[in-house]
Computed example of a mutant assay.
Amino acid sequence: MIFATPTKVVSHSGETVQYLGANRVPDLQRLFQRSDGVPVHLKRGVPDKLLYRTTMALTIGGTIYCLVALYMASQPRKR
């Protein structure tokens, strides 16, 4: 009977659960579904642009670093 025990205690007093924040889903749906020609990953403005550009810079920098490391590894050692 171990598996038959409930994992969550249910209150029978009829209390409603209070959440800490308001429901922002309808506002975000309106924002992301607006057809203004801006890609979805840039709809929220400056923070999205900053995150996108940082990600692109790190990706390009990492690719260049890997190519340089491969080039250096392919060269014979000088003695």
Rank of each mutant, 00 (worst) to 15 (best):
Y65F: 14
I60F: 11
L58K: 01
A73W: 02
L70C: 04
A73K: 13
K78Y: 15
G61C: 04
G14D: 08
V40C: 09
V38S: 15
V25Q: 06
V40D: 13
A57R: 05
G37A: 13
R53G: 12
F3K: 00
A57P: 03
L51K: 15
H41I: 05
R24A: 09
L50G: 02
P39S: 12
T55V: 08
P47K: 06
V46S: 04
T55P: 00
L28V: 01
L31K: 12
L50N: 08
V9W: 03
T59V: 11
L51V: 14
Y52G: 01
R44A: 04
G37T: 04
H12R: 10
L70F: 01
R30M: 07
L58H: 00
L31E: 12
I2Y: 05
V68D: 13
K49H: 13
V46Y: 13
R79N: 13
D36Q: 07
S13F: 04
V68H: 06
V46M: 08
R77Q: 08
L51E: 15
T55Y: 07
L70I: 01
P39R: 11
Y19P: 00
A22H: 06
L67M: 08
Y19H: 09
F3I: 00
S74P: 05
V10S: 10
M72E: 14
V10H: 02
R44C: 03
I60V: 13
P47S: 04
I64A: 07
T63G: 06
Y65L: 11
G45M: 01
G61E: 01
R44T: 02
L31Y: 04
L31C: 10
Q29S: 03
G21Y: 05
R77F: 07
H41Q: 09
K49A: 15
R30G: 04
L31S: 03
G61I: 05
Y65Q: 05
K43D: 08
P26H: 06
G37D: 11
M56P: 05
P39Q: 11
T5F: 07
D48E: 08
L51I: 15
Y19Q: 12
Y65D: 09
G21M: 01
Y71S: 03
V38K: 15
K78N: 11
P76A: 12
V38P: 10
I64S: 09
R24H: 07
G62I: 05
K49W: 13
Q33G: 01
V38R: 13
D48G: 00
T55E: 06
V38F: 14
N23A: 04
Q18Y: 15
L58G: 06
I2A: 10
